[in-house]
Each structure stands twice: as C-alpha cells, then as structure tokens.
Design a binder for these strands. Structure first.
Length: 154
DNA sequence: GCCAACGTTGGC
DNA sequence: GCCAACGTTGGC
C-alpha cells in the first residue's frame, strides 16, 4: 500500500466540493512525473492527503483514498476543456488519472508552516522549496502522523 | 501581486 | 543535445 499527496487549488476544486461529490476523477494533471505516479504506482486503497495550494492556510485539509485503477483522463479529448491536449490520441491517451473517494475533512487544516517546523516530517517532499509536483509520494509514517496525530492535536 | 523555482519549447 | 526564452506554479 502506498501513500500520496494530491494538490488542488482551493478556488478550483476544494475539499468541500469533494466532500459533496464523495468521489471524483483526478483529472487535469499535465506533468509526466505526476502522471507516472498515477499510472504506474497507484493502487485501489492507497491513502491520499488532500492538499490545498494558494489557500489560507496552505496545507493538508483532509484524507482521501484511491478508488479506481488508472484510466484515461477524458478532459484531454474535450476541445472545450482547459486541459484539452490536441496531440493526444484516443487509441493511445497521453494523460491518465485515477478516481479518489472522500474519507474525511480535518477540523483544522495541517498547515504547510506546521509541517515544515515538525522534525518528524523531515524529508517530506512538500517541504522542499520549489516543489511543484502536484502528485507526490508520501511515506507511511508521514501519512499516519499527519492524518492521525497532527490533525487531532490542534 | 511579486518573484523564485521549475518544466517545456524550439532554434541552432 | 544544448540552452535561452518563455510559461506556469505556488509560497509569501
């Protein structure tokens, strides 16, 4: 079982939208490294930290889980979609996504500031400056620490 | 809104 | 294949 951190901009798709939807296809990822993680390494049941960038505060807002195998991201074929990719072919889609299911929303978000200050989270990818990757692997220890310890002790 | 860091593009 | 120019991300 693997663990991940997925980034979303708060005004684009928020944790409240997600809570309402219960389940969503994680579309619009147009970065090869992020795609490769979804395509090659994500499995049904994997744990996901739901992260908001450009939010106040920036940080982890809740937990989700992977609920589908990787499949083609349909937005790449939709000419009206912002993420339309004219180079991608139906027979051989460039971009893949997975579906994720809502698990919980934290009472208070675990802020990036807090995560950066906590020695237990040393080495976490999201702490690195210039870490723009929107799909990041997270260690089991870091996942459990954030979703079971930090979010309850605020 | 600013700007640093990063990814992608395209000329050569 | 190099690298400069450009566009985007994301913290502040």
């Amino acid at each position: 079982m693997n663990y991940w951190l997925l980034k979303s901009e708060g005004d684009c798709y928020s944790i409240d939208d997600f809570k309402k939807d219960k389940k969503t296809a994680w579309t619009g990822i147009r970065n090869y490294q992020a795609r490769n993680f979804m395509r090659d390494s994500m499995k049904v049941g994997d744990g996901v930290l739901f992260y908001h960038s450009n939010a106040n505060p920036t940080g982890v807002y809740g937990v989700a889980k992977v609920v589908s195998a990787p499949h083609a991201d349909e937005t790449q074929f939709d000419i009206k979609d912002d993420h339309y990719d004219p180079k991608s072919k139906k027979e051989n889609p460039t971009w893949m996504c997975v579906d994720i299911g809502f698990v919980e929303k934290f009472k208070e978000p675990v802020s990036l500031t807090e995560m950066k200050l906590d020695p237990k989270l040393e080495g976490m990818m999201v702490r690195a400056t210039g870490s723009r990757l929107s799909v990041q692997p997270v260690s089991a220890d870091h996942f459990h620490y954030i979703s079971e310890v930090l979010c309850d002790t605020l």
